[in-house]
Nucleic acid binder design. Structure first.
Lengths: 340, 340
DNA sequence: CTGAAAGCGCTTACAG
DNA sequence: CTGAAAGCGCTTACAG
């Protein structure tokens, strides 16, 4: 019933457990060729699979990387995880995944469990307000790091550890600049929850850039970070601006801080008889793959999400230093902000 | 440097390690209230975090569930993983994730590693041809199961273990029936690779249902299981059928076995000046959330993906039996197959 | 209720 | 090059 043990292999090969361990699990001290062969043969015949738990206990390293995301079904996070996975694979590490549904209790719990599992590193993806990292979590991280654990965050403030920072602020500023250059002058924003730093950074980057050009938004509304959040925000925006088909003023250019919110907004406006980009223009952020064939095609900003995920685990595995990196966004102008 | 140990806690509380273990890590034998309090206090003050590796070794159960998917960035799989995550959380298990990029070597490797980590169960999501599960993998699974490991597959054939089977075949048949009922008579199929069972089942379910109505497809083409696969297949299909705007025969109704392929197809046709649904109709499969606001809205089939993922881990955790379950699809008729 | 001790399956100085 | 032995941090019969 019990799995084949190193002891079993050693017995069959007629060597000591130590020797079997050395040939099977890569030590610098390589035993004689004949011995090594006997051990390997025995292992194969018995179907020996090393017990990673026991190895971890003996080695004080588990080869595990804990990954915490808000929602694995969100394309933003699943792309990050894809990149993280790939990087973990080349480093021969395993990924422990937690999808928290944005529940901070669950998040804290997941981190605790990762620490209990003695993950070599923990990567926290997702975003929250400055200083929002609660005391408990921070205390746990401190101890974790004191015991040799590595922490890397993606897109959130943290006093310690590594970080890879998507440039939400400056990419949004570039988007604003590009839209102004394209001839837009009247702007509005559909922002996200004030508690989410990504949402705030994107909004600020956009508004600040406009300000530098002597422009400002005519109205701002906010909603949940979802399709429906964009939908209802867009209705409020339409009401506030008294938008209707064929206004003489020309289309206002709306920045929805997320592609999915932009999609919800377009749906809302369509129901109101408003056409994009003729009656209202809209830009999003994220460049979600399944949205690339949307009609009208959506002006947006692409972030190198997979690369961000990969870099995060690379930083986590690089025990040298607590590096901080930035990941630039790329503005993509498409039909949804095309001026007639 | 080293983490706080159960021994440390016991010392500080003035009890034996055994007692500390019993109060901290839930045993039925509950020590006296005073003692328990002392231990808990000591643990808190020291910041004790149980070493899951050591517990696993001593208990012969890791609380780990291995999850293998083809591509975590694919909405199909990320939805499954989301459901699996949620179910794992209620069962207080941790998820080990592997995204294989459809590379069978990587897949085999991931399974081996999961076994090495002594995962309590392994869930394999993704699809392959009948009997394609290679010998090595199968042999490993056999040993794994003999040692008490549980295996559950999603949407693929496996002689042993549990399974949850998305009803690709019958849901596709229902789709065909619905389209015929809506008045369609001329059909075509954009299928996937013959090596992917999901693709084959969907195609067969559709074609067989047509057959039962005395109908058959006018042409079938295949492509990769991607947006670009759908795009190029759609071009071939258009050429084969000599599709052009405003054909007198009316629109042919094309079943693309995946939403993303359908999206690629629509893009290809748009470039050719063909309009959906006026010149050509199209239905997909999957009901991808970010595509729900697509124009034209896409007729498709929804699978309860999260539920499928959740059921898979529930089955994996239910050591009673190797259950097999079916998950029905739901046909959703939308604009892309609307007849004028 | 509580503790001493063996055992889970490995790795790794330490001797030979 | 090879082996005996201690140790990694827990759990759990087995005694008391």
């Amino acid at each position: 019933m019990a799995a084949v043990t190193l002891q079993d292999v050693a017995l069959r090969a007629g060597v000591s457990q130590a020797t079997a361990s050395r040939v099977l699990n890569g030590s610098s001290r390589v035993p004689g060729a004949g011995v090594a062969d006997r051990v390997r043969t025995a292992a194969r015949e018995l179907g020996y699979v090393p017990n990673a738990q026991a190895q971890a206990l003996a080695r004080a390293s588990t080869g595990l990387i804990g990954l915490v995301v808000h929602d694995i079904a969100d394309p933003y996070f699943s792309s990050i995880v894809r990149g993280a996975q790939a990087a973990a694979r080349v480093a021969r590490k395993q990924v422990l995944l937690a999808s928290t549904d944005r529940d901070f209790d669950v998040e804290r719990d997941s981190v605790s469990t990762f620490i209990a599992h003695r993950a070599d590193a923990i990567v926290l993806a997702g975003s929250r307000q400055s200083g929002d990292l609660d005391r408990d979590l921070e205390a746990e991280f401190d101890r974790y790091r004191a015991n040799g654990g590595r922490v890397v965050v993606i897109g959130q403030p943290l006093a310690f550890g590594g970080a890879v920072e998507p440039e939400n602020y400056s990419a949004s500023a570039e988007l604003a600049d590009a839209l102004v250059a394209a001839g837009h002058r009247r702007f509005a924003v559909i922002g996200g929850p004030g508690s989410i730093r990504t949402a705030v950074d994107r909004r600020n980057g956009f508004v600040d850039a406009l300000c530098r050009k002597g422009l400002s938004t005519v109205v701002e509304v906010t909603g949940e970070f979802t399709r429906d959040g964009g939908y209802s925000a867009a209705r409020r925006l339409a009401a506030a601006l008294q938008l209707e088909p064929g206004l003489a003023a020309g289309p206002v250019c709306v920045y929805a801080v997320t592609d999915v919110m932009a999609i919800g907004a377009i749906a809302a406006w369509r129901e109101l008889g408003l056409r994009v980009p003729d009656d209202v223009c809209v830009a999003g952020f994220d460049d979600i793959p399944t949205l690339r064939d949307h009609t009208p095609s959506l002006t947006t900003v692409a972030l190198p999400l997979e690369q961000i995920g990969a870099r995060a685990v690379e930083l986590a595995l690089d025990s040298a230093a607590d590096l901080r990196e930035r990941a630039a966004g790329r503005v993509i102008l498409r039909d949804s902000t095309r001026l007639g």
